[in-house]
């Protein structure tokens, strides 16, 4: 029933005001322009998408060659933005719920998904709100480039862990708090290369792998990583790396049997 309702909202809301759709369609075009201001995210997307596909396929024992390997799985994309991850996940078969704290992002993502005929349940909200509302648990949670922006890392990650179903997989991607990260991700990316607006990342908000691991482990998840992600300037491409001093990812799995999720 809840699903049916959200589907109706998703289908009807973009048709409410044609002027508004046009406005958000333009913003969506910005989000999805690989030569525009979100170019760094587009460059980063293939490596993290491949990581997600590989990790989830292995952890959940899925068919690695299937066209829609995530078919039937409930997936939560936290901090979904314009839907750069949600849309590929929907194409891989997942039933996607995309959540973002910025209403503008949600409207943008909805318009773009409708244009591309993808059925994605985008909601303006936050992980804590979902948990409190008694939302059904998720098989996959994507927590990508979010923790370095939240007010309370521990509370946020514990809420996310609470939304993970038994056997479910969460992937966390963020930036390490190291001098190298300061040099490359803040000074380099924001001030030298101008990939990101100045002020996108604050050094003191960056998260060390241990700080992300602790709250997830406390919630009973098995945490693996960090897996480094590095930029190769010659190829202008990102790839997995042994160096997790700047960008890194963690995987967290909820055991099939074990402590029940807190809710």
């Amino acid at each position: 029933m809840a699903e049916a309702l959200s589907e109706i909202r998703h289908l009807e809301s973009p048709t409410v005001d044609p002027g508004e759709i046009e406005r958000f369609s333009k913003i969506a075009a910005d989000w999805w322009n690989p030569r525009g201001k979100f170019r760094p995210l587009h460059k980063f997307n293939p490596v993290r998408l491949k990581f997600i596909r590989d990790v989830v396929t292995v952890k959940k024992g899925l068919d690695a060659n299937a066209r829609r390997p995530f078919a039937g799985l409930r997936l939560l994309d936290i901090g979904c933005g314009g839907g750069l991850l949600s849309e590929p996940m929907a194409r891989l078969g997942a039933k996607v719920v995309g959540v973002d704290a910025a209403e503008r992002n949600i409207k943008t993502a909805k318009v773009h998904a409708a244009e591309n005929r993808l059925d994605i349940d985008y909601r303006w909200g936050a992980a804590e709100v979902l948990l409190d509302s008694g939302e059904a648990r998720f098989d996959i949670i994507l927590n990508m480039e979010v923790v370095e922006h939240v007010a309370d890392v521990e509370m946020f990650l514990r809420a996310c862990a609470g939304l993970l179903a038994p056997g479910g997989v969460m992937i966390v991607a963020t930036i390490n708090r190291t001098s190298k990260a300061f040099a490359l991700a803040i000074v380099g990316a924001e001030r030298v290369l101008r990939w990101l607006p100045v002020g996108t990342h604050r050094y003191d908000k960056l998260v060390k792998p241990g700080e992300a691991r602790a709250p997830l482990a406390a919630e009973g998840l098995d945490v693996e990583g960090p897996f480094g992600v590095a930029y190769n300037p010659l190829a202008d491409a990102w790839s997995l790396s042994n160096d997790s001093a700047v960008n890194y990812m963690l995987t967290a799995t909820r055991p099939l049997s074990g402590p029940a999720p807190t809710s």
Partner: peptide, 14 residues
């Protein structure tokens, strides 16, 4: 297609 990206997207075609 393997990672779910849009086959007609400029990011892919570039």
């Amino acid at each position: 297609r393997h990672v779910g990206l849009d086959a007609g997207g400029l990011d892919v075609l570039e």
